[in-house]
Amino acid sequence: MHDGVAAYVLGVLDEDEHEAFERHLDTCERCQAELIELVELPEQLDELKNAPSASDDDPPMSMSR
């Protein structure tokens, strides 16, 4: 259950799992502490999403499937 904190802070859980994790968070001090630690990470990742677009010869990071 504790490992859901990353998915929770990124907002990538399904609705019901998101709500279930919030209930877990209400009583789990470990996850509360980790939420505080991780809360800025999504915005740092947003830097990639919002960055000016790559030039065509930059290789994509991931393999296209």
Binding site: L48, S55, D58
Partner: peptide, 13 residues
């Protein structure tokens, strides 16, 4: 495609 590289335009961003 997710843009992984910023064009280095000197901005902080």
């Amino acid at each position: 495609e997710v843009d992984m590289m910023a064009v280095p335009d000197g901005s902080e961003r």
